[in-house]
Design a protein around this nucleic acid. Structure first.
Lengths: 152, 152
DNA sequence: ATATATGGTCAACCACGTTGACCGGAAGGT
DNA sequence: ACCTTCCGGTCAACGTGGTTGACCATATAT
């Protein structure tokens, strides 16, 4: 049994997430990718090989308007292109650029390195148990995230 | 070893946190405490038995202005009082009301119940290992949280 | 007594989300 | 072909939780 009160769990989860995200954003900044926010990473993951704003909103569990705003910011960062759909001229297909894919690759590298450090502190069995636990953790109502969190 | 890619860790942490928070907010809503946001819970925890806005900002790792806004919203919810300091007439002491303390108590109950359910799904050893892991997780730069996460 | 440090507030701004209204292209029914 | 309905996208206004800068008023140190 652990000495930590269960009621501290949410705070610890939050803190660990922010700690990982901060480390990755520092690394991206250093590697020539400044101004990347948490939202951008999630959205790029959700876009995958390409989709529309409406689909992006559905995948992230947010409104299509919010998804469109995020897409616009991704475009300004040079991470995606927005091209007219060939069959349906209403839609704009969001597709990752090489720079966008590279950002994702660097993020994944940084995340893995950070978790690797964490493993040396906590032990492999403990981190593996953590991953197992998180898979059956309570799910939020919004943010369905029905997209694969890929290895990139 | 776990079958989950380490790169999914941040997403899983985030999702677990939101899942717990959602459950607690639903419970609070049901118990007659509507409109409680994540910020309010963190701030109430940070206030503890009482402190000033500046101190609250320091504890949460945010600016004093942001802390003052949160305090104002807590006052409107009836969770704290803001009284002039007896020795220093500049300061306003933020102190939890009985309703504020009751909200914290209900939150703690709901969090414990939710983690208890989680324990039955994942197993005690796995959750204990998770708590151990989270204690040595990467720390965010901001949000120092040098206040005790109390059992209430 | 004056200078400096500190608690609090106001105002403007940013990031990220919401809802409501609307335009225009696609699709279906008659 | 035409009209209606559906749906992708955009615009505008707003809410929340942060930021920084300027400022006032009170404490405090010299």
């Amino acid at each position: 049994m652990s000495s930590t009160d269960d009621v501290a769990m949410p705070f610890l989860l939050m803190s660990a997430f922010e700690g990982l995200a901060d480390a990755v954003h520092r690394e991206l900044e250093r590697a020539g990718y400044p101004g990347v926010r948490t939202t951008h990473g999630f959205a790029m993951q959700a876009i995958g090989s390409g989709c529309t704003s409406v689909e992006l909103g559905a995948r992230l569990g947010i409104s299509k308007q919010a998804a469109a705003k995020t897409a616009q910011s991704l475009e300004e960062l040079g991470f995606i292109t927005r091209t007219r759909g060939p069959h349906d001229r209403r839609e704009r297909i969001l597709q990752p650029t090489p720079r966008g894919l590279e950002m994702l690759r660097l993020s994944a590298l940084a995340f893995r390195r950070e978790v690797e450090d964490w493993r040396t502190r906590a032990g492999d069995e403990v981190i593996d148990a953590t991953l197992d636990a998180l898979l059956v953790a309570p799910r939020p109502t919004r943010r369905v995230a029905d997209f694969p969190v890929t290895g990139v």
